[in-house]
Simulated assay, not measured.
Amino acid sequence: MDTLFTPEQIAQYHRDGYIIVKNLVSQPETALLYKTALEDDAMRKNALDLNDQSGKKTKLSLWFTPGNDVFGYLTRSEKLVGRAAQLMDSDAPVCHFHSKLMQKEPRVGGAWEWHQDYGYWYKNQFMFPDQLLSIMVALTAANKENGCLQVIKGSHKLGRVNHGFAGEQVGADMVMVNNALKTMELVYVELEPGDALFFHSNILHRSEANLSDHPRWSVISCYCSQSNLAYNETSTSWKEAVQIVPDDAILQWKAASLSEADFLKKENDPALKDTGWEQ
């Protein structure tokens, strides 16, 4: 099946903490996703603004249960779920934790500070970081000019790094980040629309502010194994097996509105609360 990774690609993911798949999402699919992101009113109404350390705003819309909208069809597609299953350290069914639309507008889109996703999700008390991963699909071109994602190759092998607040975001301990940068390779993840980045929950990554004249939009779907318990998470999709749909659903199936999605409210995000228990 062309929806699956080869053994060599799986080994590359475990070595580097990430892998890029070119043209995983077709150009017509990507165009439809981007058009929906721009036009669906629910995305705009449910967008969260998070300040970086300089005060610039980065914007995202985050929802939990993958529905019957075009983004739900992407998240539930064979080509994403099948590959996610191959990369996680579990034979249990794949579940969907959440998806988010990242919106970096020209000249004003803020930075994301250095962090690990598990630096956030540790507060949700997920047990096993090797059973968590994210898949970023570029909806527009991502490059150095417009603040593309940067990763520290192999840094997932450090395990969880302590995190604190950096602006309104949660950022990794910069002593460890700087040590990692001295030791490992910094990679700029430049993507074309439709390219996908699969990355481990513990890989250190960041992105610069978008000071270019071009937007940088992407959708990131975060998956976990059904065997990965989360003791401080009130949503439920993380423990429900994904109802997989065929890859052609994005273009061929009737799509519902995103207004039916269960969006995250900023005040309910445990990652943005200083709970104290994990220090």
Score class of each variant (00 low, 15 high):
6 T>Y: 06
8 E>M: 14
8 E>N: 13
9 Q>H: 07
12 Q>E: 11
12 Q>Y: 08
14 H>N: 10
16 D>R: 07
20 I>H: 05
21 V>T: 03
21 V>P: 01
22 K>I: 00
30 T>S: 15
36 T>D: 12
40 D>P: 11
40 D>E: 12
48 L>P: 01
51 N>P: 04
55 G>N: 05
62 L>Y: 11
66 P>D: 01
68 N>G: 01
69 D>T: 02
69 D>Y: 01
73 Y>D: 05
75 T>V: 08
76 R>T: 02
79 K>R: 15
79 K>G: 13
80 L>S: 04
83 R>M: 08
84 A>H: 00
88 M>Y: 11
89 D>M: 12
94 V>R: 00
99 S>T: 11
100 K>C: 05
102 M>N: 15
106 P>S: 11
117 D>G: 09
119 G>C: 08
119 G>A: 08
124 N>Q: 14
124 N>K: 13
128 F>K: 13
129 P>K: 10
131 Q>F: 13
132 L>I: 15
135 I>H: 04
135 I>W: 01
138 A>N: 10
141 A>P: 05
146 N>L: 07
147 G>F: 09
148 C>Q: 04
150 Q>L: 07
158 L>R: 13
167 G>I: 05
172 A>H: 02
173 D>Y: 14
176 M>P: 13
177 V>E: 05
185 E>I: 08
194 G>T: 00
204 L>H: 00
217 W>Q: 02
217 W>D: 01
217 W>F: 08
219 V>A: 07
219 V>Y: 04
222 C>Q: 15
225 S>I: 00
228 N>Y: 00
234 T>F: 15
236 T>P: 03
242 V>L: 10
246 P>C: 05
250 I>M: 15
252 Q>T: 02
254 K>I: 07
257 S>Y: 02
260 E>F: 13
260 E>I: 09
262 D>W: 03
262 D>R: 03
268 N>G: 06
268 N>M: 09
